[in-house]
Design a protein around this nucleic acid. Structure first.
Length: 570
RNA sequence: UGCCCGGUCGUCUAAGGGUAGGACAGCUGGUUUUGGUCCAGUCAGUGGGGGUUCGAAUCCUCCCCGGGCAACCA
């Protein structure tokens, strides 16, 4: 046990310090957090961070976390999103204490509003949205009082009840908190807290035609649930003053809001609005397109929940803006997938290899381990014969010294099979190599090699008569600049200008060993628990949701680290 | 130009008056029937100026830089 690990264990992030302080000082005796998504889009990796923070912290201190949908705007919210969010949180491996909805509190929030009106802390304003905006002032100029600001509380209450009754058109009246039109905090300049919307709500239907705004609902919901630590992202910082104001004026449970920096990741975007735009304008296949940073996209791509949780732990929590390198996510994926994935051999760009001293009609089944990292994973059999496919890139006519693969006069090991020596090759009229001829060494059989022959490299291969064709989809980053939104602002363009046109490359007929077809047949019922694969020397792959036995489709999650590719670049 | 946050290796994140540490990325080697994994090593940082102090990433101050704030969105 070194000092370093001890140090790591003791280091706390600022939220942990706050919680420990509150516990120690007796402010709270337990911890209750909440994850409060608005059901107006799919969850993304940034939400995973928030989920990890909220559930993780509660868990660390023996507390619980509620899942509360912030569903105060029926215009944009749907049940489809509610379902996807629940699914994603579950899939990530978290269990909420209670499933709640801000809409559960509509009646109570209405009563809160009445209470504010009667205390003189809120008033009905007949101004148009333009007039309200104009009256707000600017960050450097104070606002001006609405002409309705000093309306009698009785009159406001009456109007507010009539708003609820549906007597007024949308946009004609709002309820505003009466705070301070000169506050340096724009949000304190009499914010609108109720608005008229004749919209059906996914839970309350047509019961309401007035809906509370975020500020009227969020903190109050926290207080109703007795949330101890209400953790949100930095952009809500200036809402904190309002959050506290409501709790103070309504004399509610003193929930406290703390803000942390949201996750930003290179070569992607993290805004529901913009992700929706990618979906609607068909830049991608849907919210779960494997290139999307959504949880559903990552799942379809083949990332594991463990990898995503590990990622969220590694990125930490702080208040400074950040841009996490996507390579960290890839590292987390490789680290987990390496331990659990089944190894299979798939040749993407085949070239024929003939074992000249192997009989034409002879085939042998060779055993190969499913996962060298996991003895319990067992093994499978692979047919071997005279004619095989290997990767075109694994043979060179004119190899450099550092090339460890096939070339005339050189040896390589065929994975789980024999060492072969290359004698010759055949070219077509165009000068393309069409066949490679090799001799195998019988005494070099995998597992009982007493040939004494050395081979620098090992190749994957498939027996040509036994090939199963599969479609493989290889993905690259969705955007070709690190920060698409910032870049667009700088160049006075739009973020979609930077969508990477080569983010999807389909290999329609890669050649797979037979075992892969069997693996797939046995998992065709689909779901979230398909097996994770490593195609040897290539990368990690996961069956796509549209994959069938007739037409197997695999998504590349991430490549293997490739130091040879790096050497070639230099 | 107002208010509020923030600034530590390339990227994240620790150190809360006492040796600036870890991870990812990079680079070197070693092992290897995956040029994977694993192992070892290495490169690299406190935005700037003053001040307090025996001692400052840490406290004070001025400056610089970055972000947020003017939706009947959340």
């Amino acid at each position: 046990m070194s000092d370093n690990t001890a140090e790591e264990r003791n280091s706390k992030n600022f939220l942990e310090e706050i919680i420990e302080r509150d516990l120690k000082e007796g402010r709270h005796s337990s911890v209750l957090t909440r994850f409060p998504p608005e059901p107006n889009g799919y969850l993304h990796i940034g939400h995973a961070k928030s989920i990890s923070v909220n559930f993780g912290l509660a868990d660390k201190y023996g507390g619980e976390t509620n899942l509360r949908f912030d569903d105060t705007n029926p215009v944009t919210e749907t049940i489809e999103y509610v379902e996807s969010i629940k699914h994603d949180v579950n899939w990530l491996g978290y269990e909420w204490a209670k499933e709640l909805y801000a809409s559960d509190y509509f009646e109570q929030l209405f009563e809160f509003a009445i209470r504010l009106i009667r205390k003189g802390f809120a008033y009905v304003d007949d101004s148009t949205s333009e007039e309200i905006a104009a009256g707000k002032g600017t960050p450097t100029r104070p606002g001006t009082d609405s002409q309705y600001r000093d309306r009698d509380p009785e009159e406001s209450e009456d109007l507010f009840r009539r708003m609820r009754a549906g007597e007024f058109e949308e946009e004609t009246r709002t309820l505003r908190a009466k705070i301070d039109m000169a506050s340096p905090n724009m949000l304190m300049r009499d914010p609108v807290i109720y608005r008229i919307k004749f919209a059906s709500h996914h839970r309350t239907g047509d019961e309401w035609c007035i809906y509370p705004t975020y500020d009227m609902a969020h903190g109050q919901s926290d207080a109703i649930e007795k949330i101890t630590h209400s953790l949100c992202t930095l952009e809500f910082m200036s809402h904190r003053e309002l959050y506290d104001w409501f709790i103070d004026k309504l004399e509610l449970f003193p929930s406290k809001q703390y803000e942390f920096a949201r996750l930003n990741m290179s070569y992607t975007i993290m805004s529901k609005r913009r992700l929706r735009e990618l979906v609607e304008k068909k830049y991608v296949d849907g919210w779960d397109d494997p290139r999307m940073p959504t949880i559903s996209g990552l799942r379809r791509r083949g990332f594991t929940p463990e990898a995503i949780r590990d990622f969220c732990t590694r990125i930490g929590v702080a208040k400074r803006d950040n841009l996490i390198d996507v390579s960290l996510l890839e590292f987390c994926a490789r680290e987990h997938l390496n331990k659990i994935s089944l190894r299979r051999m798939v040749v993407f760009d085949p070239i024929k290899l003939v074992i000249t001293n192997w009989p034409e009609d002879k085939f042998e089944e060779l055993e190969s381990e499913n996962n060298p990292e996991d003895e319990t994973a067992g093994s499978r059999m692979i047919p071997f014969g005279r004619e095989l496919y290997i990767e075109r890139a694994d043979f060179m006519e004119d190899p450099p010294k550092k090339f460890f693969r096939l070339a005339v006069g050189r040896n390589v090991r065929l994975k789980s099979a024999f060492i072969i020596t290359c004698d010759d090759f055949v070219k077509d009229n165009g000068g393309n190599v069409t066949e490679v001829h090799c001799r195998y060494h019988p005494e070099s059989r995998s597992g009982s090699d007493n040939s004494g022959i050395k081979a620098k490299g090992t190749l994957h291969w498939v027996s040509i008569p036994h090939v199963h064709h599969i479609e493989v989809r290889e993905y690259d980053r969705l955007f070709n600049v690190e920060k698409p939104v910032e870049e667009a602002a700088k160049q006075e363009g739009v973020f979609t200008d930077y969508v990477n046109p080569d983010s999807l490359n389909i290999a329609p007929a890669a050649c797979a060993e037979p075992a892969l077809a069997d693996d797939f047949a046995s998992t065709e019922k689909s779901g979230d628990n398909l097996p994770y694969f490593q195609f040897m020397r290539k990368g990690y792959y996961y069956p796509d949701k549209y994959s069938t036995r007739e037409k197997p489709v695999f998504n590349r999650t991430v490549t293997l680290r490739d130091t040879w590719a790096k050497m070639k670049k230099k």
